[in-house]
Amino acid sequence: MMGAETVAAQPLRGGALLLAAALCLAGLVRREKQREAPLVPLDLLRVRSFRLSVVASVLCFTGQMAAAVALPFYLQHGLGQDIVTAGLFLVPWPLATAVAAPIAGRLSDRVGTGWLCAVGGLLLAAGLALAAVWPLGQDARPLLAFMVMCGFGFGLFQTPNNRNMLLTVPKTRSGAAGGMQGTARLVGQTAGAVLMTVLFSLLSGPETAPRLGLALAAALTLAGGLTSLLRVPPRGAAEAVEAVEAPAPGR
């Protein structure tokens, strides 16, 4: 974070901090690979479906956080909304996520999680893309519909993706899978905040950085949805992990 904040104004210092961060990450990976009970369960990434879920989670949470940072600036400085109105414009997103999450949980019992995550990621990307390019002018009301689209897509993605992470590993490693799930979320959120920090440092204008941030967020969430499609078995076969690991009805 410190490197991203300073790299535009002080390239040498910012670059050195980012390089140090990369070296520390490489050292952590090397250290954890040699441990029987690693702090970061890198061995779980050998499971293809789990690995794809982690990648998709990082991408979608990066886009989600970039949008969460960009939207208030866009509403207040680009569209001239006051603080309260800007907050009200953001409310439909979490409400739609709350509605979509239980629906996605029920659908996960009938539809492959890869398909659900792909549809959710595509819906989230569409909402962000529309928010970035739609000519709102003095009427910001269409943004409410885009926020509903984003929230519903995010809820449709998150629940099945988390389910897949927990069901693709042995039950004895469920704690490690949950830890990796939280790590993927935080890595994505941090990356999204860093992305917007860099854009605000490099670009001027009340709309330029927020709208570009929303466009990049749309691209990232689209990539997350497409990554989820790689988990879809060929010829419509049921996902092996759900056939093996899913709990019996009523349990």
Rank of each mutant, 00 (worst) to 15 (best):
I103W: 10
Q76A: 05
A118V: 03
V119C: 11
L59A: 12
T159P: 03
G105W: 03
A100P: 00
L95I: 13
F157Y: 14
V47D: 09
L52S: 04
T97K: 08
W93C: 04
L124H: 14
R110K: 07
G105M: 02
A118M: 14
Q138G: 02
L122I: 06
L122K: 00
L59S: 11
S49M: 06
P102C: 11
F154R: 01
A68F: 14
L144D: 05
D139V: 14
A132N: 14
G137C: 13
L52G: 01
D109P: 00
V119P: 03
L45N: 05
L130S: 12
L95N: 06
L136M: 15
A67Q: 15
L143F: 15
S49V: 10
G121C: 07
G155T: 01
M65D: 05
F157A: 09
T85C: 02
L122H: 01
L42N: 09
Y74P: 02
A131C: 14
G155V: 03
F50N: 11
A100S: 13
V84R: 05
L95K: 06
W115Y: 13
F154K: 01
A104W: 05
S53K: 03
G80M: 09
Q138E: 15
A66F: 10
M147H: 04
G112K: 04
G105V: 01
R51F: 09
Q64G: 00
V69K: 01
L116K: 04
L144C: 09
F157Q: 09
M147G: 02
V54T: 12
F152C: 04
V99E: 03
A67T: 15
F146Y: 09
P102F: 13
F73N: 02
V119L: 14
T62H: 06
V69A: 15
Q158D: 10
G127W: 01
R51V: 00
L124S: 15
L75M: 10
C150S: 14
A129R: 11
T62M: 15
G105C: 03
A68Y: 13
A140G: 12
G151M: 11
S53N: 11
G155R: 09
V148P: 05
R48P: 04
L144Y: 15
A67V: 13
F157L: 13
D109N: 10
M147P: 07
D43V: 04
T85P: 00
A131N: 09
A100H: 08
L156W: 12
D43L: 02
A67W: 13
V54K: 03
A96M: 11
A126R: 05
V47W: 04
V47Q: 12
W115I: 12
G112A: 10
L90K: 01
C117D: 13
G87M: 08
A66Q: 11
G87I: 10
L143Y: 12
